[in-house]
Amino acid sequence: MDIITLLWNWILVNPMANALVLLNNAFFGSFGLSIIIFTVVMRGVTFPLTLRQLRSSRAMSAMSGRLQEIQKKHKDPKRRQEETMKIYREAGVNPLGCLLPMVAQLPIWFALYSVLRLTVGDVPESTISLSKHLYPWSFIQQAVPLSNKFVGLNLGQPNVILAVLTGATMFVQQKMTTPPAMDERSASMNSTMLWMMPLMFTYFAISFPSGLALYWVISSVVGIVLQYVYVGSGGLTWRNLLSLQPAPAPKPAASQVTPAAQKTEPDEDEEGEEAEAGEAVADERRYRKRSRRGKRRRKR
């Protein structure tokens, strides 16, 4: 356990603490400002992962027309799911793609929490602990004590306003990134995710130092801006902002409609059980044909 703590401090906590103190010195002794700058830098560092997720979002947004066609064409939810996954595979979209940037940020959150308790905890014991984490450079050491005040906030204590902002910005970001559901079950799950995550983070933000909430708010704002620049609003408008449903899919362009899909798919309302089995085989063949077609198109 000591080795783990040592490595954890050496790799994450110490560099982060010293970076924040350095930024604090550079930005007029404002620790709040240094958290903001640090957040932007961290989003820059994790940008490659975010870019993957944004590209996934963009691809899903571009497929919205085809997805809507599937929704109209197939009444059977299972069939709809199958066709949806086929399209995802063709486009190289990973439904789990949104998790990766979040998972990558987890250690940053944990380390930042530790750092905030050391730097702006404002308790004598934490100041003693801080001495073990700062590098022996005079311009770092002389920054102590660090001011925990920022625009009326005490960064070492929870703050309700920041907690609410955390939930709100996360809600908006979720709304912009959650894809439209293809069936009731997906819609239910998406709706749950949409409010559950922001509520969860609001609860965390109320329980932890407001410096961490500040990080989350800025991070969400950066995420919203990136999403808007790369993908667009995702169908989000002021009218549906407060709705607990994901934003509706934007109307597809005419080019997104695929006439070929309409011609080849049989009407599944008329299929019996045996016909469905045979259909699965036919589906497999059609899928392979389409994959090859898609590959040829991409090569061109």
Binding site: W109, Y113, S114, L118, V123, P124, E125, S129, G156
Partner: peptide
């Protein structure tokens, strides 16, 4: 992790 780890905040 956030409740168990980290430094001291209470005096």
């Amino acid at each position: 992790l956030l409740t168990a780890c980290g430094g001291v905040t209470s005096p």
